[in-house]
Design a protein around this nucleic acid. Structure first.
Length: 638
RNA sequence: GCUGAUGUAGCUCAGUCGGUAGAGCAGCGCAUUCGUAAUGCGCAGGUCGCCGGUUCGAAUCCGGCCAUCAGCUCCA
């Protein structure tokens, strides 16, 4: 028999005179490695440790330190959990359980549904299975055999999964003790490797992601190679909760909700001030970028939406009602139709293009009650919305500039996109295939020019045009769409828009829908979590707080306070009878960027002791120097 | 909208077996005048989400509704 040469990552080679498994290779290198091994990478593919190697290969033994092994560990942990659930609830039916970025989940049908109260028992059973150190064995089998096994076990969801496996794919199962699961693997070698896992939540999930189907229990959990890593992760989750915009919003009195206005926001003085700052910043920016700002009606006769297509495609999400004369009215869910009317109001020339209209108007969408959440999903909101009317050949330059603008704005807040997606022509689309191709090309060229790392969502565009979406994460890792750039051939056609081109002919413009923040509400939420409430000075509702050591210094402190006020600084004062430690604590908890301590020393030398929220005690300085300092920070954006 | 959970003072949360409501913080008052994350004492504060039912009696048990939370479907 020919020798098998196995090349290891350090460049060394091992030869064997018979087929081997990665586990055996690991053992031949050292018993420590064999113990630490969770999986292996053979010619770049992650496989089980008992995967047979019959020819020359490149091999890497994966231990808990590699990200691929972590994924395998978590995937295997779904089986551990499923086995535990089956032991405790033999009637449970399993669907699917993949690893995720932060852990794993498994969709399971039980009757009654599982609740968090079941977690301790399941975790206990999981620990006991881990203790049993059951070997995990792969078996490849025929479709019929697989079908028979899961039919016998009453696993109807597994049968459906088998039917959905493509013809020529290998079907495999993994067995550990009495438990068997349909799975392509790979998996860890035995259940003894699980040292640190935790079940986190349970929620409903529609079977096959279809709202028409029954719901299964999605149990989410996470697993790590060591207890320390698990604890660190759980602590990180706790800290993320402290940054949650709903919590910070309440603590800092930025906004509130009331059960009589579900999905709507009461902006309290401090939050409203910040909202206005953001709004003003965006208005200024848009003006600089050649946009004209407008404000348009909130309430329209249904006729408008019949023309725009919203009546047909969006009515379910709109607030509708009749006036006294029984005309049907709707609150606008988007600004685009009004902007079409503005464009159409008079004859337009090619000289006006690109014509850019910015609108921060109030929008209402009747979102399903279960989707509402804090500031991220609301029923009334404003966007930094704009529509750009342009000629087909202007698309690429305009989009290139737009992407640049989006990047500039997010840089300003030190924010990064977790994803940028280009969504292309869907199966059912409107307009000419040629103009779609051209538009998609223009978008991808613009993306390239801006060196954006972009995922292509084939066929995921809107029916009216392709689009680029910008996604950011909140503190809990959930993804939200914020900025968006969408091309539209549909609305110009429906509203019969035209302009007179260079050749004195009528030509239809293309419309670009774009938003940079997306909605102010959602962007606000993400900003809060991004900064953890520690806003930059230009945005902070209270920029400075003057604290007195004792009431003897109130005279001077008042003078300082008035000077700050007259210099346009948003200052507050705390002249209460508390000790300075308590006042500092209070000011820190309210995230005031600068606390100015005024006592005997400061009063006699006419200075201030400055304490920065970010940098701590900065020592004392004259008021003039502080004003200079804070004004520089304040103008960081404007 | 769907599944599950939750709803007690402004906030965070106790409240056992069904017997009529409790803490800390915040607030208010008084004392303290203090040097960089909590001074002390006192007072006040509740239609136990709402409606109905069971019961001699309901925060507690049952039903309906509302809201919130975790997800799902959908979306900025």
């Amino acid at each position: 028999m020919a020798e098998i040469r196995i090349q290891l990552p350090d460049g060394s080679t091992k030869t064997f005179d018979r087929p081997v498994t990665p586990g055996e290779v690991a053992a031949s290198i050292g018993s420590g490695l064999a113990r630490a091994a969770l999986a292996a990478k053979v010619n770049g593919r992650v496989v089980d440790l008992d995967h047979p190697i019959t020819e020359d290969t490149e091999l890497e033994i994966l231990t808990s330190k590699s990200p691929e092994a972590l994924e395998v560990l978590r995937h295997s942990c779904t089986h551990l959990m499923a086995q535990a659930v089956k032991r405790l609830h033999p009637e449970a039916m399993l669907e699917d359980g993949p690893p995720t970025e932060e852990g794993f989940w498994y969709d399971i049908r039980t009757d009654p549904p599982l609740t968090p109260e079941d977690f301790p028992a399941i975790e206990k059973e999981m620990r006991s299975i881990a203790k049993e150190a059951l070997p995990i064995e792969r078996q490849e089998l025929s479709r019929e055999e697989a079908y028979r096994i899961f039919k016998e076990r009453g696993e109807k969801y597994k049968l459906d999964l088998i039917e959905r496996i493509p013809e020529d794919d290998t079907i495999s199962t993994y067995r550990q003790g009495e438990f068997i699961d349909l799975c392509r693997g790979p998996h860890v070698p035995h259940t003894g490797v699980f040292k640190a896992f935790k079940l986190l939540s349970v929620a409903g999930a529609y079977w096959k992601g279809d709202a028409e189907n029954e719901q299964l229990c999605r149990i989410k959990g996470t697993a790590f190679p060591t207890k320390q890593e698990l604890d660190a992760y759980l602590q990180m989750l706790e800290e993320a909760k402290r940054r949650d915009h709903r919590r910070v919003g309440r603590e800092l009195e930025l906004f509130m909700h009331h059960e009589w206005a579900p999905g709507e926001i009461f902006w309290l003085p401090k939050g409203h001030l910040m909202y206005r700052q953001l709004s003003r910043m965006m208005s200024d920016l848009c003006r600089q970028e050649g946009y004209d700002e407008v404000f348009t009606p909130l309430l329209f006769k249904a006729d408008l939406f019949k023309v725009s297509g919203h009546w047909e495609h969006y009515r379910e999400d709109m607030f509708l009602f009749d006036d006294k004369d029984e005309n049907q009215f709707a609150l606008k869910p988007m600004n685009c139709p009004s902007h079409m009317l503005i464009f159409r109001e008079k004859k337009r020339s090619y000289r006006e293009l690109p014509m850019r209209i910015h609108d921060q108007g109030v929008l209402h969408r009747n979102e399903a009650s279960g989707t509402l959440s804090g500031l991220t999903r609301v029923r009334q909101f404003c966007q930094d919305d704009a529509h750009i009317f342009l000629a087909q050949e202007q698309i690429e330059d305009e989009i290139t500039a737009l992407i640049g603008l989006v990047k500039r704005v997010y840089d300003l807040f030190d924010m990064q996109f977790s994803k940028v997606c280009l969504s292309t022509r869907p199966e059912s689309y409107l307009g000419e295939k040629e103009s779609w191709d051209q538009a998609e090309k223009a978008l991808s060229n613009a993306i390239e020019k801006n060196q954006l790392d972009c995922t292509i969502n084939e066929g995921d565009g809107a029916f009216y045009g392709p689009k680029i979406d910008f996604i950011v994460r909140d503190c809990l890792g959930r993804e939200w769409q914020t900025a968006t750039i969408q091309l539209d051939y549909q609305l110009p056609a429906r509203f019969e828009l035209k302009f007179i081109n260079r050749n004195n002919e009528e030509e239809m413009p293309v419309v670009v829908h774009r938003a940079i923040f997306g909605s102010f509400e959602r962007f606000f939420a993400i900003l809060i979590e991004h900064y953890g409430g520690n806003f930059p000075v230009w945005l902070a509702p209270e920029q400075v707080r003057v604290l007195t050591i004792s009431e003897k210094h109130e005279g001077y402190a008042q003078e300082v306070y008035e000077q700050l006020q007259s210099n346009g600084i948003r200052a507050e004062k705390d002249f209460s009878a508390e000790k300075i430690g308590a006042k500092i604590r209070e000011g820190r908890m309210k995230r005031v960027p600068y606390l100015l301590v005024v006592g005997e020393k400061e009063a006699s030398s006419r200075t201030l002791s400055v304490r920065s929220q970010q940098k701590g005690d900065l020592g004392s300085m004259p008021l003039g120097s502080f004003l200079e300092w804070i004004n520089r920070e304040k103008s960081a954006v404007f």
